[in-house]
């Protein structure tokens, strides 16, 4: 698991990360969202014991990032923003090299590497020089490198950004499999749909501060309010006066549609539907309006900016 409290980082006088608290239990995925320069990379580097926190503490896979740096790095698999492969090596040599650095025997590193190359569709290119790899292939190989030593915690920075849709699907499925096998994953991404699909928790970082951290459901509720439902009607709403049950408010209305905000859908929705029918409105469809992570992110960032002003 990943835990951090009051984690802070100064570069000279510049405050890059400002007292952030994080808690990602084992087997969960946290999507860390933020604009460029918000502090995501610095946070990840502190969690991998590359940067020393100026204040606060963090524990990753049970190890303190300052006092147990080598153990932290041994327990973590990191996909960095820049993949930094060695152009004159092939993938087998490359993975053996990193396997050795992660204290794996060459034979084990090669075996595990072959499995992962197969899994990510790179087996055929295993003897090709890495300089000849496409951008997507490089990203997949960097991910393979991060998974090579079977780490308990994964810190993934934009894992699918350079990939075609098919490869991206493959990687997302792999992340879901890793999550279900008990790996703790911190995912830095700009792809909000990906974050929404994979994450159990969302944290939004702005100017080095976590401005929001909760489960996706709670975040949506907190930021965008109660769930919204839309009723599409067969006829036109001429002169209809709303007579709504408690806990339901009319948000918007069109010629043949109504949009409600419902505090407690379990109780209120059946009453609302009955009420609409009793009012002689012919309901064609009644469905929840999806609150996307993008709406959450933009809302949170806007709120954060307003608060700062």
């Amino acid at each position: 698991m990943i835990e951090a409290e009051g984690l802070t980082k100064y570069f000279d006088d510049f405050l890059a990360v400002d007292h952030i608290d994080l808690k990602v239990p084992q087997g969960q995925v946290l999507a860390l969202l933020g604009k460029n320069g918000a502090g995501k990379t610095t946070t990840v580097r502190m969690l991998t014991s590359i940067l020393r926190p100026s204040a606060g503490w963090a524990r990753v896979a049970g190890f303190d990032v300052v006092n147990d740096a080598a153990n932290v790095r041994g327990a973590v698999g990191v996909l960095t923003e820049h993949h930094g492969l060695y152009a004159r090596m092939n993938s087998v040599e490359y993975l053996e090299f990193f396997g050795n650095l992660y204290r794996m025997k060459s034979v084990d590193a090669r075996k595990r590497g072959d499995e992962l190359l197969e899994m990510f569709g790179l087996a055929e290119a295993r003897k090709k020089r890495l300089g000849e790899y496409s951008k997507g292939m490089r990203q997949k190989l960097a991910l393979v490198r991060a998974l090579l030593h079977d780490p308990a915690v994964l810190l993934l920075d934009e894992p699918t950004s350079a990939m075609d849709p098919e490869s991206a699907r493959l990687v997302r499925d792999a992340i879901l499999t890793l999550r279900s096998s008990g790996r703790t994953i911190l995912l830095c991404t700009h792809n909000l749909a990906e974050g929404e699909e994979l994450a159990d928790q969302v944290a939004i970082i702005q100017n080095g501060r976590i401005i929001l951290h909760n489960t996706l459901e709670n975040v949506k509720k907190t930021l965008l309010g109660p769930a919204e439902y839309e009723a599409r009607l067969a006829g036109v709403l001429n002169g209809w006066q709303p007579n709504l049950p408690a806990g339901v408010t009319l948000q918007e209305r069109g010629e043949n549609w109504l949009r409600f905000r419902v505090d407690d859908p379990q109780t209120a929705n059946p009453i609302l539907l009955r009420s609409l029918i009793e009012q002689h409105l012919e309901v064609v469809t009644f469905q929840e309006i999806e609150h996307s992570l993008e709406m959450v992110f933009l809302g949170a960032v806007r709120q954060g900016e307003e608060a700062q002003e």
Partner: peptide, 17 residues
């Protein structure tokens, strides 16, 4: 060169001192 090509960071992420 490793810094410039960003290949140093994966190395720094290993348990090596």
């Amino acid at each position: 060169g490793e810094k410039e090509r960003s290949s140093i960071e994966p190395l720094l992420n290993t348990p090596m001192q």
